[in-house]
Amino acid sequence: MWQIIAESVKSANHPLNQDSKKYFIPKDKEYVVVAIADGHGSKKCFRSNVGSEFAVEVLINIFRQHFSSNTFDNLQAGFSGIKDNLAKTIHRQWMEKVRNHLAKNPFSFEEELIDVKVLNNQVISYGTTLLGALITKNYIIYLQLGDGDILVVKDNEVTRPIPKDENLIANETYSLCDKEADSLFRFYYQPVIGQLPDLILLSTDGYSNSFPNDNEFQKTALDYNNLYKEEGMSFIRKNISGWLKDTTVHGSGDDLTTILVFKTSDNESATKRETDNTN
């Protein structure tokens, strides 16, 4: 029912890629979970590549558990109550992972000297955004903390299930390392009526920042959808890394990560085995 591509390219301006990506499709392909995270590049967030990795792991695991226990079934009237707990759980579990990591990997002497504020609140060094989606036959849950984009293509139209946050400009973003992060998550619960979307695209802000405006960026989703129909998955898989490199070089100059979830027809085999891929 679904085919997925997850790809990430490092900025030429960064010593390492601080983005992370992860997805999961169970054997029975009943659902898909996808997550990407953009570790902050500021000097204070020197462990954000680890923080972003923890973020996608936490979200994938939580969505899997909730799907298994049917938490989100028939929620049209009551998702608002659940989303607060969901945000709190994601935030708490991410914090636990960070604190465990810190306990096993205390700051080095050099790291201690980077910033006194970080020394007093070491979680800051792991700061990251988080975007994700749980896609099932009956509903889709989209989630976002901080910058980045989620685009949906259906019937050749592009929509944003979670609108852009007008408060986030000048490279500022909300972060999982914020003490109040659970209140900064945004969700969209969408019952599936009729057909599933043709494509769901998640990307870090390096992608949309490479285009002069949102219209030019949204063409990426339409183009991927058309390429999938006309050229097939292997064509996209073969070329996507080069396309993303070209995009960041001539665009934002930022790390660039995207996950594409294509709807397949029922008789197409999306995944032949259980997949838990971090690439």
Partner: peptide, 14 residues
């Protein structure tokens, strides 16, 4: 084979 990059015109940031 056409390998045109998906998306519109690229731009650096002002």
């Amino acid at each position: 084979m056409e390998t045109k990059r998906p998306g519109g015109v690229l731009s650096n940031r002002p």
